[in-house]
Computed example of a mutant assay.
Amino acid sequence: SEFLLLGLSEEPALQPLIFELFLSMYLVIVLGNLLFILAVSSDSHLHTPMYFFLSNLSLVDICFTSTTIPKMLVNIQTKSKVITYVGSYTQMYFLTLFGGWDNFFLTVMAYDRYVAICHPLQYTVIMNPRLCGLLVLVSWIMNVLNSLLHSLMISRLSFPAELEIPHCFCETKQKIKLACSDTFFINMVMYLVTVLLGSGPLAGILYSYSKIVSICGIPSAQGKYKAFSTCASHLLVVSLFYGTVLGSHSSAAASVMYAVVTPMLNPFIYSLKNKDIKMALKRLYGMADLFLLFCP
């Protein structure tokens, strides 16, 4: 009826430090991504496909971390390692769902950059609101079905009476590894799904950037620099995302990098050298000051 999450460390002296560290990181994730969403939504100049997908990415990052960090903080504070059977499957379902959405939005953003750089005159026609909405809807349906498949497949497995998960949250691969029953068929299905929904988007990103590298008719050095500078932030986030995903298969610490550190850095990476976002944040800050002036 319940499982035990062993966490990153069982050393009692380290628990307060871990609690403070992850609480701080969670607050930064929520506030940073919320500010990014508010900045984009409050500025009409940022109502473009690129910022639409970035806002969705920020929202997914908030939801993704909210499935793991609050439960971990509660367990540390109450000195309990327990997660219920239903809670473990709920957490696993939403981890798979939001992780899939992260992957999808990074792929769509790569396609958006490809169209903007290689077909600038047709950009507004190709990346129209209907297509953007359709891409989000298709992603939602695909990832909901994928998450349901993961949950249903794992619900058929048998587990020990006292299952100890050497992690701070429930991951699919961890539960499969600790199952008592035969997992060959499930491993094969999961492998095929990973190839389709994991390698497919990565191949799309690589294809988009292979086209961008050819510069598509931008002869000047200044034009090339401008083209690549618009992709630099996205390339950094893609590298961080896939690097931590691959590392998450080796250790719990690497999984935390993927589940916590990457969502925390994303809004800063996209805002650091982005003049439009900085201007939107300044206007947002000015509006907040005005609101406090009239509504103290």
Rank of each mutant, 00 (worst) to 15 (best):
E2F: 11
E10D: 15
A13Y: 09
Q15S: 09
L17D: 12
F19V: 01
M25Y: 08
Y26Q: 06
L27K: 06
L27D: 03
V28D: 04
L34R: 10
V40F: 02
S41T: 11
S42V: 01
S44I: 11
H45V: 04
H45I: 03
H47D: 09
M50S: 12
F52I: 00
S55W: 01
N56H: 14
L57P: 09
S58T: 07
V60K: 01
C63W: 07
T65K: 03
S66G: 08
T67D: 02
T67S: 14
T67K: 00
I69E: 00
L73C: 10
V74F: 10
I76K: 05
Q77V: 05
T78F: 13
T78M: 13
T78A: 10
K79H: 15
V82C: 09
V82Q: 10
I83L: 13
Y85N: 11
V86Q: 15
V86C: 13
T90S: 13
Q91A: 08
F94H: 14
T96A: 14
T96W: 09
F98E: 01
G100A: 04
G100D: 01
T107M: 14
Y111S: 02
V115G: 03
I117L: 12
H119A: 06
L121A: 08
L121R: 14
I126G: 09
P129K: 00
R130H: 09
C132V: 03
L135P: 10
L135S: 12
V138Y: 01
S139M: 08
I141A: 12
M142F: 12
V144K: 09
L149A: 14
L149K: 11
S151D: 14
M153C: 13
S155F: 12
S155H: 11
S155D: 08
R156T: 13
L157T: 12
L157I: 07
S158L: 07
F159W: 05
P160V: 01
P160N: 03
A161I: 07
E162K: 15
L163S: 06
L163D: 02
E164L: 12
P166S: 01
C170Q: 05
E171N: 11
T172L: 06
L178D: 07
A179P: 00
A179C: 08
C180D: 13
T183K: 03
F185A: 06
I186W: 05
N187E: 07
V189A: 11
M190P: 05
Y191T: 10
V195Q: 02
V195K: 02
L196G: 02
L197D: 02
G198V: 02
G198P: 03
G200P: 06
A203E: 04
G204E: 02
G204C: 09
L206A: 08
L206F: 11
L206K: 04
Y207K: 00
Y207P: 02
S208V: 01
Y209D: 01
S210A: 09
I212D: 06
C216A: 05
P219Y: 00
S220A: 06
A232M: 08
A232H: 08
H234Y: 08
L235G: 15
L246N: 10
S251D: 05
A252W: 00
A252V: 12
M257N: 09
Y258S: 13
V260C: 04
V260M: 02
P263G: 03
L265N: 08
N266M: 14
P267H: 06
F268A: 07
K275E: 15
A280V: 06
R283C: 09
R283Y: 14
Y285F: 13
D289S: 12
L290M: 14
